[in-house]
């Protein structure tokens, strides 16, 4: 039986800041409805790689790429592709929660939808509720949707950001160390949520935390100094890594 084609794939992807090459020749595929962890020591290019996947990288000073990124087989760097439309299909959540502080909880979730033009109130209400439910936040905020987003705890804010990123129904969700600024309770809820979200989305998650990668992901890719050293099913990477550097990293010998 042939492997299904990946939802998102990179082909010889190299990402550069000016003269500095941060990601070197990475070819990776992410299948639909899987959670894919990117691990590696800090500064190894995980975030840069992630940001090439929704074309956020090109907004950095001197940021450009060579190679390809394919979403369902289509090159997202093709000349006909609008980065704005692309980012509606590939959502992103950042390390620190980034709610819009002047907006209510409701408006935060609706923010991406409103960029796409006006929608009837009822439809908007429905999508906001669905997104908050999917982000496991609905029960906590349903009585105060008009409260400021800043009234939420850090963990809740991060789930709000997840709700905001999935409201436009993307196919892929990119998470860049989403639990790095959270306490253990908040971290656990996000991990459970990530596991749930793969029913509907393809997830790529950068994490610093080895246990987290082991707990939530189906595949794990190890990055080191801009190169992708090893990629495979999470179980295999953690129990029988082929590369010595991978083993050294996951056993905590460096990083």
């Amino acid at each position: 039986m042939a492997e299904p084609p990946p939802r998102l794939a990179t082909v010889h992807l190299t990402a550069v800041y000016g003269k500095f090459t941060a990601v070197k020749d990475v070819s990776l595929g992410f299948r639909a409805n899987t959670v894919n962890a990117l691990i590696g020591p800090s500064g190894c290019g995980k975030s840069t790689f992630l940001r090439t996947l929704n074309r956020m990288h090109e907004l950095s000073d001197g940021g450009w790429i060579t190679g390809k990124v394919l979403l369902d087989g289509e090159d997202i760097y093709g000349s006909r592709v609008s980065p704005m439309q692309l980012r509606r299909r590939i959502g992103m959540v950042f390390q620190k929660p980034t709610p819009f502080p002047t907006m209510s909880i409701y408006d935060n979730v609706a923010a991406g939808l409103r960029l796409n033009g006006r929608r009837p109130r009822g439809e908007l209400d429905e999508i906001v509720e669905r997104s908050l439910r999917d982000a496991a936040l609905w029960e906590e905020v349903k009585d105060r949707l008009q409260a400021s987003a800043l009234a939420l705890s850090g963990g809740q804010q991060q789930r709000l950001c997840i709700a905001r990123s999935i409201a436009p129904r993307p196919q892929v969700v990119l998470l860049d160390e989403p639990t790095a600024s959270l306490d253990p309770g908040g971290t656990q809820r996000i991990e459970e949520l990530v596991f749930e979200l793969k029913k509907d989305y393809t997830i790529v998650i950068v994490t610093h935390n080895m246990q987290q990668a082991a707990r939530v992901s189906d595949t794990t890719s190890f990055f080191y100094m801009g190169a992708m050293i090893e990629s495979g099913p999470t179980r295999q990477i953690f129990t029988a890594p082929r590369e010595e550097r991978t083993e050294a990293y996951i056993t905590g010998r460096f990083g």
């Binding site: 929704n54 956020m56 907004l59 704005m84 439309q85 692309l86 980012r87 509606r88 959502g91 992103m92 950042f94 620190k96 980034t98 819009f100 502080p101 002047t102 907006m103 923010a111 991406g112 409103r114 960029l115 796409n116 950001c161 905001r164 990123s165 436009p168």
Partner: peptide, 27 residues
């Protein structure tokens, strides 16, 4: 910068990021 990035990541244009995220933050 994270405010601008958050808006851009939602599919906002540069101008939409200014109007929807940056100006409200700075109001």
């Amino acid at each position: 910068g994270s405010q601008r990035e958050a808006a851009l990541a939602l599919g906002a244009t540069r101008w939409e990021a200014v109007v929807s995220a940056i100006l409200p933050y700075a109001r």
